[in-house]
Design a protein around this nucleic acid. Structure first.
Lengths: 156, 156
DNA sequence: CCTGAAATATCTAAAAG
DNA sequence: CTTTTAGATATTTCAGG
């Protein structure tokens, strides 16, 4: 599960997280590596699961998704089967961008991306009221997406 | 700011969010479009800012980042200059993966990705205690990353 | 808005040091 | 790890409907 990374790999990982479209020849220059070596290492990083996938980052506003909402959910029962079912329904909802099962003073943190408040309200009905296992939830409306992304620090 | 999307664009956006490495010829087949048309539309989507960038998704565990922590921060003062300075310092920290400025019962929601608790504690000192504008913060440790990513729904 | 063909560029794999 | 080579793929441009 944990691949041994050398310092070339680290340079590559930082670079492709920032911009996955830079040519391998260009990556080679930055990492002081041949193009062939870059190719080999990137492929290895993918096959070892260090790089999980490549994706395009879409600007939510550009497709009419203007509202980001963070929600804290408390559950009624911690029964495993009920929690599993909740997680499945959360994960299956396209407007739930992220979901974390947490320890602390709530049980789930969800990040919604919705078109408007109406859509959010409708989704809370579907996801929270229907399940009968949500004790309460707290809504935090984002005024500013200060920092977004899934970038992973690669240090050393 | 808002580009008019046709139904080809929507198919393309869904596809490249899932996997940015599919060939344009393959995308063309899926969208019933020529390769050249796919190329042109993707380039347009980028230049119009609909697609912000392309990125590699790195598995945090594979690089030793095993802990995801959600933090709610309450501030002392809402003075604009103080808030700006906080946002800058949060955004500048590589272990702060995401940061939202929110309305509701706290002011900021941060998502940390850290190696271990020690690192988290150290970062809270730097980011929260130094600023002198953090009234309190609440730590939620993720037991399960149920759903992650920055995927944006593209409907219609 | 589209297509199809031609020209480039990039990636991949193999061979050899 | 390197370089070089060569062939397969992918991207981009261009002419034209």
């Amino acid at each position: 599960m944990v691949m041994k990374l050398n310092s070339y790999d680290r340079v590559l990982l930082r670079a492709v997280q920032e911009d996955a479209r830079v040519a391998q020849s260009e990556l080679g220059e930055r990492a002081s590596l041949s193009t062939a070596a870059v190719n080999r290492r990137l492929k290895l990083l993918s096959s070892e699961g260090v790089i999980e996938r490549y994706t395009a980052c879409v600007n939510p506003k550009a497709v009419g998704y203007d509202l980001t909402i963070v929600v804290e959910v408390k559950v009624e029962s911690e029964r495993a089967d009920l929690l599993d079912e909740m997680q499945r329904s959360f994960a299956a909802c396209p407007q739930v961008q992220q979901c974390y099962y947490v320890a602390g003073d709530c049980d789930f943190v969800l990040i919604f991306l919705v078109r408007n408040m109406e859509q959010y309200v409708e989704l809370t009905r579907q996801l929270f009221f229907k399940s009968n296992n949500v004790k309460s939830f707290k809504t935090l409306v984002a005024m500013n997406r200060v920092k977004t992304g899934m970038a992973v620090p690669v240090d050393e």
